[in-house]
Amino acid sequence: MTQGEKRKLWVGLAFISPWLAGFLVFTVFPVCASMFFSFCDYDVLTKPVWVGTLNYRDMFTDSVFWKSLYNTLYYTMFSLPLGLVIALIIAVLLNQKLHGRSLFRAVYFLPSLIPVVASAMVWLWLLNGNFGILNHMLEWFHIKGPQWITDEKWTKPSLILMSIWGCGNTMVIYLAALQDVPRALYESAEIDGAGAWVKFYHVTVPMISPVIYFNLIMGIIGSLQVFAQAYIMFGGGGPNRSVLFYVMYLYQCAFDYHQMGYASAMAWILFLIILFLTWVATRSTRQLIHYGGE
């Protein structure tokens, strides 16, 4: 490196130093500290005591840990594919030449803009077993609606339903991708006699596959970290901990029970789970994703 290049490097570093300082203090340091604390008995108020892998070993015998993991995977398994498919269907519909298309797009995107606390409070009323509008609508079809919030069998489906309501962000990303699909491909397909479904399956899906993949990965990460709405609506995890999600339990351990070491270990395990699932998703979809530049 020449003297000039070195000088340029230092000047460059100086320019990005505000971000660098923030990154080091608020990201790198906490990440490293949490790795250290995960091997400690640490309650925030007293000095951490090194306990080796005890926190990680405890997780294997902690039934609440497994329950929270089960709840989270259950939620992810249903909310993620449902969210991806429904967002895609809405995006495709909103990509048609309709009257008032912009209005519909805005309407479907609106729920994503509502603050999470406000939407959680509204859903608490919508899902109320006695006075909720959802059960009221079910009554039109002579179906006795369940106690969505208080019956442990229905708490997870309630949250899955709510997650679909907020799929506006995913929809907008799909919509952007759909508008990038070249018209010429559809025209060629039509000349070859392709119908609507064949065009969708053989033209649209491959062309937007990188975006589907992106939404899938972001969805995995987001679903496994589900926290805010469930915490606001159910606090301690709902009836019989039926909606105690992984991150909620992590939060409880850290801030309610002062087990910061155990919570740190849980955070690292979650990181590994997300890493693994992302890797699996990447590997298994490699052949299915079509990049225009390749």
Binding site: V11, A14, F15, I16, S17, P18, L20, A21, G22, V25
Partner: peptide
């Protein structure tokens, strides 16, 4: 270039 560095230092 020094200004951002100073800002970071102050932070």
């Amino acid at each position: 270039a020094t200004l951002p560095a100073l800002l970071a230092g102050l932070c």
